[in-house]
Amino acid sequence: MIIDILSWILLTAGGALGIVGGIGIHSFHDFYSRLHAAGITDTLCAMLILSGLGLQAGWSIAAFKLALIFVFLFFTSPTASHALANAALHSGLKPRLSREDPAEQNHHD
């Protein structure tokens, strides 16, 4: 019973964080900032949902597989983010930094 409540909380928090990340990739103004929003959904959101499922699985092979999924995501997501950011920088995509005039930021969209 307590485990059910706990895993419900974890799953809901993970889902909510995922939606926050989804909003983030729409509300941020440049590619590099959006990468940070996508980072939320890759890390804590995945952790919360997988651990919520892990509580339901108990000590079983299913829990081991969930842990493996978590490890794979944990190792591949920074590599993918870095590859994306590096490729974007090399292709000449300039990040929009905060030194720019804030009034101008609204124009660009």
């Binding site: 889902g15 995922g18 939606i19 990739i25 729409h26 974007a88």
Partner: peptide, 28 residues
Amino acid sequence: TALLAILVTMGLALARALAGPTTYDRIA
């Protein structure tokens, strides 16, 4: 609840993939 939340997030990501504007946004 979790299924619906994940589906909404996937929808938002798909919208960003369609909207672009750069190729890198789409891949991300």
